[in-house]
Design a protein around this nucleic acid. Structure first.
Ligand code: MN
Ligand code: MN
Ligand code: ZN
Ligand code: ZN
Lengths: 152, 152
DNA sequence: ACTTAGACTGAGACTGAGTCCCATTGCAAG
DNA sequence: CTTGCAATGGGACTCAGTCTCAGTCTAAGT
């Protein structure tokens, strides 16, 4: 192990998560760390079923509670897809602003990123319309409904 | 009542709905008609609670079943907003393509329409990205999260 | 080292929007 | 009429998600 300055990107993320949790008097326990690890490792948003499968020793009640806590701390985002199951991914300020393809057949969620210019146009149009309606926008989500390659 | 050619826009809609239902061997019963009336009359998408309030004599099980049937017939669209309650509106081929402002405080849903040009740009970008992912897109939804005027 | 406050855990009870069941009723075609 | 389904409605049921609570862990203070 010649590398002593060691910290990889994943370790940096864990440090950041820990700092954010500490800021609200929360601890970065093994269960929470395992959930963050899983969310980052999986390419796509993960469901409770995914967590139960990949982390069989983490009780469901703890998984649900940890996800609520991580969401409250602004570290994790809950996604309501096309099926009845919630899914979870890293919050956008830990990754980048993006959107989703939702498979109406199997419920799979795939991340996509729009061109910056188009994203800007959308945001401006939203600001415009919202102000007319007396609505204060915090953000937006664009979901594409369709059928994924595996289900075609 | 001097007007004998009578059929208003609402009547035309009812006729269209009846035709579409007949096409799939379904009947346009009083309960279903009342639900369509309510959905059209209300400016915004309606929840089951709205239906229970405005149509107190329509049993919940019938309301849910009718909504499922109307959705299957492509006449009504189910909206998953920011709260835990589903809402319902006319399907887009009975109105026009549009999107929603979602109040994160009270759950209210407000219809909005984007400029046609922007809408086209979004659709094209989606086609492009989806094809790269091997995903066959059927449509999209754009939800703006924020706080409505009443909740500000 | 010991204490202590409160964050955290886990097993299970509970909630409630939405679905299913089934006996009964309505309705349209022949 | 009759006959085959569509439709009804009251209530039982499902199950993802939430809540409870007694016990445990952890960090900070002394
Ligand atoms: Mn994502
Ligand atoms: Mn709408
Ligand atoms: Zn799929
Ligand atoms: Zn509101």
């Amino acid at each position: 192990m010649a590398n002593t300055e060691a910290h990889g990107l994943l370790d940096d993320l864990h440090d950041l998560v820990e700092t954010r949790l500490r800021r609200v008097d929360q601890r970065y326990t093994a269960g929470r760390r395992a959930i963050i690890d899983l969310i980052v490792t999986a390419g796509n948003p993960v469901s409770i079923a995914d967590i139960a499968t990949r982390l069989p020793d983490l009780p469901r009640s703890s998984a649900y509670r940890n996800l609520v806590d991580l969401e409250s701390a602004g570290l994790v985002r809950r996604i309501v897809g096309h099926d009845e199951f919630a899914r979870f991914e890293l919050a956008e300020d830990l990754t980048e602003h993006h959107h989703h393809l939702l498979c109406v057949a199997c419920g799979k969620v795939i991340d996509i990123t729009l061109a910056a210019g188009l994203e800007r146009n959308v945001s401006e149009a939203i600001e415009e319309i919202a102000s007319v309606e007396g609505f204060r926008p915090h953000g937006h989500r664009l979901d594409v409904l369709g059928v994924c390659g595996a289900c075609a």
